[in-house]
Design a protein around this nucleic acid. Structure first.
Lengths: 221, 221
DNA sequence: GATCGCTATTATCGTTTGATAATAAGAGTA
DNA sequence: TACTCTTATTATCAAACGATAATAGCGATC
């Protein structure tokens, strides 16, 4: 008759619907980010949230529904972090202001990637193979994000402030260069001994990306 | 009494040890790259190679041993593709020659990432969580690669040819920016409608990376 | 053409997976 | 205190997993 409580011990903890849902969501993000959709088990997700495995199907419809809810939640945070940085309407915006806004967006994206590595981990896990999840995520969340930065980059490239790289290629250069140290943070620690989540790394990283992607920003004001 | 032959039909195909091993290796690379270690099943790997699932344990020790052999094989190809491009001994090498060599290495790496997306797919899958596989891969294969480019970048950075980015950070900026379109090729096709494996994309991508990472190469000769 | 070594094929094992049903128990209300 | 709604817990299912044993059949050698 041993205790079967999730983690610490024996108490039966009862949480409000919103609390247990949020705990499961954040646990799911960590597990899906680290192991991928197939590699992450609902039992591990529940254990991390100090819950039992059937609670996932009780509070969410299925493992897939939990994944969708977690991705929705995380892209919501990304939209918050980038909201209003790059102007939606570009006609009449002067170039120095737009260049500064784009640099700010790059810095915010780097900081977000460092603070929430799960987002890019999940994206890179899913992006390696076609699936319903990838189609949904691309259309629902990635496309608006992509369409938001493309016109601004085009303007900056036309006036020579931005590096000479195509719209579509730039998007992947930017995302890849901005996210990999945090997506693969365990490898970074093994390979370099440094901690990519430290403020020193993050700010140096952001500075470097702005310097190479917007060479005309510091050169000719 | 239906046929149980792996794929096409009914013939019992018997292959030489080297042939079936190579078929399983290449199938394993595709599956591990697309689904990750846990997500890839030995049955799917065998099916792609037109073999039966127990042949994996017959020709390799285990699923883990197959993974190790596949990664060994792929890093061998990478070493071939980059062999001798960046000089091992830097004392006495003049800067323009070293800069051109580094640019060549970048272009070769981009082309390799496009031709063998499985390498970076596997690296990014494994790098998201600590594991024995990650430790082995980092020490055995990634470290030598990392140590090979670090001194050259330091020299180019000191003379102002390379972008002002730290050694460790640059490594992840370079790898991330060079590999993401091919790692996430399914997403690229959904998002942009373009094919990242086309020569147009690959060469434009390589040109762009050289331009932003070695701004002093074209500017001041 | 009989023998022998090697690969192919089938069958099956014990685990783990996501999911569901059934029961227990906390918390607010009357 | 009794009732009721909601969440927690346990038990269990079918399917898929990696792995192994046992048998079948090809192909070279004598």
């Amino acid at each position: 008759m041993q205790s079967k409580a999730p983690t610490s011990g024996k108490v039966r903890l009862r949480r409000a619907r919103t609390d247990i849902r949020e705990a499961l969501l954040e646990s799911a993000l960590v597990e899906f980010g680290a192991k991928g959709f197939d590699g992450a088990s609902t039992r591990a997700i529940a254990r991390r949230a100090e819950a039992h495995q059937p609670q996932i199907n009780y509070h969410f419809e299925s493992k897939a529904a939990l994944w969708t809810a977690a991705v929705d939640y995380l892209f919501g945070l990304l939209r918050e972090a980038l909201q209003g940085v790059i102007p939606a309407e570009l006609t009449g915006v002067d170039v120095p202001r737009l260049a500064a806004a784009f640099a700010d967006a790059i810095r915010r994206f780097v900081r977000f990637a460092a603070e929430h590595p799960e987002l890019n981990q999940i994206m890179v896990h899913e992006g390696t193979a076609a699936s319903d999840r990838l189609t949904w995520m691309t259309q629902t969340h990635v496309k608006p994000f992509f369409d938001g930065i493309r016109p601004a980059w085009q303007v900056l490239r036309n006036v020579g402030v931005a590096a000479p790289i195509d719209n579509e290629i730039l998007y992947y250069v930017l995302v890849g260069a901005a996210s990999l140290p945090y997506v693969n943070a365990p490898e970074v620690r093994l390979l370099t001994g440094r901690d990519p989540s430290s403020p020193q790394w993050i700010e140096a990283h952001a500075d470097g990306l702005v310097a190479i992607l917007l060479p005309g920003l510091t050169a000719s004001p």
